[in-house]
Nucleic acid binder design. Structure first.
Lengths: 232, 232
DNA sequence: TCATTTCCCTAGCGATCGCTACAAAAATGA
DNA sequence: TCATTTTTGTAGCGATCGCTAGGGAAATGA
């Protein structure tokens, strides 16, 4: 696809400067350093800078010139290490998902009920979306808004809708288990949760504080029947 | 500011091809047609096309080339009639506010209680944000997202926050009147409403149907105490 | 008819966009 | 030392961005 992409360019994982050339067959010593001139920058550090830029400004408003400036590398280095702008953004979204955006998945996996998962998600969203040290709000919600590239826009839309679908199936499971009433509209409840998350993210971008978002979350949580199995 | 802007270019209201040259002093007859070559396009029609383009793609992703194509006029005609891209967008936002986005103001002005106003707003949002014939969601919420021009982004942010502030003062009025409990957190309740509106708008952009948004609205409304003065 | 006024069309301005050709620089193994 | 491999910086590609100069076209009043 791309002519000048080296081994760890568009690869899935971000491996360091290993993957050497000289391979010692069955022995353990594969400590050989790569062949040519070594990279002058740390790939993960540069990726983190790109993440913050995309998070702040969105995919399209972040130019390659912006990226090379904040990553402190030249354009050819960027293209050699990350492919093109789109590939870099995809990798940024992956890293964002594992580093910043995984509280929803954790809540769904670890909490005993759907309500508890939603409660934890909304409360953690209030914190995460206003945390100092990085842009406010959710990258997945905002970074591909008004994007001329329909594939980029669709990829984040898919993530948002998959998130809501995960809530819905979790709610359905609680309905089947008798934790929630049989008449529960799981789809609507899940979509309501998704709308709250996205609305809170927009509020965070518009300047709302953590306390203000927490108050919003409390209100949103009051719709859930308090008949859960929680001990609290 | 702009050298080649005629009388009705960047003016507040969109007046037609009047504002004639020959002025009959105190008499009523000011029917004289303008002096030079008449415009070959209808200004309001072109403005509506620009509105739909900005609504669909956002401020920055809509190029002047896009605009001249959908408005079916040349670039010099656009600049002569509307100033620059920014002025055209400002006018589009004004028209959008009066034509599509005024249901919130109407609800706040016409409904007897804050709860009724929010109820009507959320229900009408479900309809308006999924209406066929124009893009889904709210222009004010989305059109300036990820905008490189901070003034444009701020102008819509101000509108969103002013909207929430209007809800808050309406809620405070009901608290003062005894319609809502004295312990009501007006700011949080207003922000919750704003987050719901923005979340529903995002949902509409992501493909949610009117029925789905109405179900979300019903859930969101269930947080309000049903002790209103409504007869229904 | 004719000067005046205003609009439209062509054509192109300088700036920026994403991206890359090219050659020097810095590491390797032999 | 020297050929090989990979990265780096420079410099610039074609395309598009927002915007406008300039001259002809279409209306006016005289």
């Amino acid at each position: 696809m791309h002519p000048m992409v080296n081994d760890d360019g568009t690869a899935k994982a971000s491996k360091g400067p290993e993957a050497a050339s000289a391979r010692v067959a069955g022995d353990g010593e594969v400590r050989t350093r790569p062949r040519g001139r070594p990279r002058s920058f740390d790939r993960e550090t540069a990726l983190e800078k790109a993440l913050l830029a995309f998070w702040e400004q969105g995919y399209e408003a972040t130019s390659v010139s912006d990226l090379t400036r904040v990553m402190d590398i030249g354009a050819p280095s960027l293209y050699a290490a990350f492919g093109d702008k789109r590939s870099l953004f995809d990798e940024v979204v992956r890293v964002y998902g594992t580093r910043y955006g995984s509280f929803t998945d954790r809540a769904l996996a670890e909490e005993p009920t759907a309500r508890d998962a939603v409660e934890r998600t909304l409360r953690e969203a209030a914190t995460a979306y206003t945390e100092p040290g990085h842009p406010h709000g959710c990258l997945v919600v905002h970074a591909a808004a008004n994007c001329s590239n329909p594939e980029v826009e669709q990829s984040l839309r898919d993530r948002r809708n998959a998130n809501i679908a995960a809530f819905e199936s979790r709610i359905r499971a609680d309905v089947a288990a008798g934790v929630l009433p049989p008449a529960t509209d799981a789809a609507a409840l899940a979509r309501h949760t998704g709308a709250m998350i996205q609305g809170m993210s927009q509020q965070a971008r518009d300047g709302a504080s953590r306390e203000e978002l927490e108050a919003v979350a409390e209100i949103a949580l009051s719709i859930w029947p308090r008949t859960g199995t929680r001990t609290g």
